[in-house]
Simulated scan of single mutants.
Amino acid sequence: MWKICCASLALVLCFVARAEAHFGMLIPSASTVTEKKDADLKLAISFSHPMEMQGMEMAEPKAFTVSMGGRTEDLKASLKPASIMGHKAWQAAYKVKRPGVYQFAVEPAPYYEPAENCYIIHYAKTVVAAFGNEEGWDEPLGLKTEIVPLTRPFANYAGNVFQGRVLLDGKPVPGAEVEVECYNKKKSHQAPNEYFVTQVVKADENGVFSYGVPWAGWWGFSALNTAREKIDYKGEPRDVELGAVLWLEFTAPKTN
C-alpha cells in the first residue's frame, strides 16, 4: 500500500510540474516596425506561466542585448524594475533608428525551484523587423542554448506552421522536447483541462521541430535541456535546467 501511495504521489507531482511550465518572457511592443511612430519599442521581461497568467519573481538579468547586422549591443543599463502579473519583472525602452532585423536576448540570473530541486536558466529572445529589411533573421546569436528559426519569425499569420532548430552549445539537439504556450494576456482563452495548458512537440534527429499556431497572439517556444555543470545550493550541487526560449507574434489578417 505504501509503495502504491508513493507511486501515485509521484505521478501527481509529475503531472503538476507539466501543467505549470516555466517560461522566460521577452515581449516587445511590436514585432514589426514600418512607421517612425512605432520605432520606440517597449520591452517587457519576466518569468511566468504565460497561459495561466501566473507571475513569478525575477531577479535582475545577467545580460540583455540586441543584435543586428553582425553587431551586438549591451542594453543591460537600460533595464528598469517593473511589475508583471503582480511579480517583480523588468522593462526597457529601445529606439529603432534604421532598417534591420533586431534580435533581443536576455540571460537571467539562475532561479532555484524548490519543487524541482534544480536551478532554471531560460535564455529568452525575440525578433523585431524594421523598415522593410528582413535579412539575418535565421542567424544564431551564439547563446548557451537557443532556438534558431527556420520559418521567418515575424509577419506570420495565426494558423501558420512555425519551424525552428534547437541548439545547445552551438550544436543541434536531436529529440529535444519543446514546450509551447501563448501569452494569455487578456485571459481570452481557457484550457479545457490541465493537459491543454502546455503544448509539447519533439524535435527530429536534426533538432528541428514544427508547430501549427492555432490563434493570434504572442507564442513562446521553450526547448529544455540539462546542463553538464551544476550549481551549489546550501552546500549541495544541483542540476541546472537550460531553456532556449523564443517569443513570436502571430497575427490575424485584416478583414473588410
Rank of each mutant, 00 (worst) to 15 (best):
T198K: 08
G220N: 10
S210N: 13
E205C: 09
E194H: 10
S188H: 05
Q199K: 14
Q190R: 01
E194V: 12
G207H: 03
P192K: 03
N206T: 00
W219M: 12
G212M: 14
G212T: 15
V200G: 09
D204P: 14
V208W: 02
V197Y: 05
E194P: 03
G217M: 01
W219P: 14
S188M: 07
W218H: 00
S188L: 08
V208Y: 02
A191I: 04
S210M: 07
G217P: 01
F196N: 04
Q199Y: 07
S188N: 08
E205Y: 11
P192M: 04
T198Q: 10
A216W: 04
Y211W: 15
G207V: 06
G220E: 10
G217K: 00
A216H: 08
Q190P: 01
V200N: 10
V208T: 02
Y211I: 14
G217V: 00
Y195A: 10
N193L: 09
G212H: 13
N193V: 07
A191T: 07
T198F: 10
W219Q: 11
T198A: 13
V200R: 15
W218M: 01
G220I: 06
K202T: 11
W215E: 09
P214A: 06
K186Y: 09
W218L: 01
G212S: 15
H189T: 03
N206P: 00
N193C: 12
A191R: 08
G217D: 01
K186P: 09
G212E: 15
A216F: 03
H189M: 11
N193F: 09
T198P: 05
W215T: 08
V200Q: 12
A191Q: 10
G207W: 03
A203T: 08
P192E: 05
F196D: 04
K187D: 04
V213W: 05
A216L: 06
A203I: 09
N206D: 00
T198G: 10
S188G: 12
Q199A: 15
E205L: 12
V197N: 05
E194T: 11
K185A: 13
V201P: 08
V201G: 12
A216P: 04
V208H: 02
Y211S: 14
E194D: 10
W218E: 02
S210F: 04
N184Q: 12
G207F: 03
P214K: 02
Y211A: 14
E194Q: 10
W219S: 12
A216Q: 13
K202G: 06
K185V: 15
V208F: 02
N184S: 11
F196Y: 05
D204G: 13
E194C: 11
W215N: 04
F209V: 10
V197D: 06
A203D: 10
G207T: 05
H189I: 07
W219Y: 14
K187L: 09
V213L: 12
S188D: 09
T198W: 09
G207A: 08
N206K: 01
V208S: 03
K202M: 11
S188I: 03
H189D: 06
S210V: 05
Q190D: 00
V213A: 05
N184T: 13
K186C: 06
V197M: 06
K187P: 02
E194F: 13
K187R: 09
S188P: 07
P192A: 07
P192Y: 02
A203C: 13
W219D: 13
V208K: 01
Q199E: 14
G207M: 06
P214C: 05
G207P: 03
S210Q: 11
G207C: 07
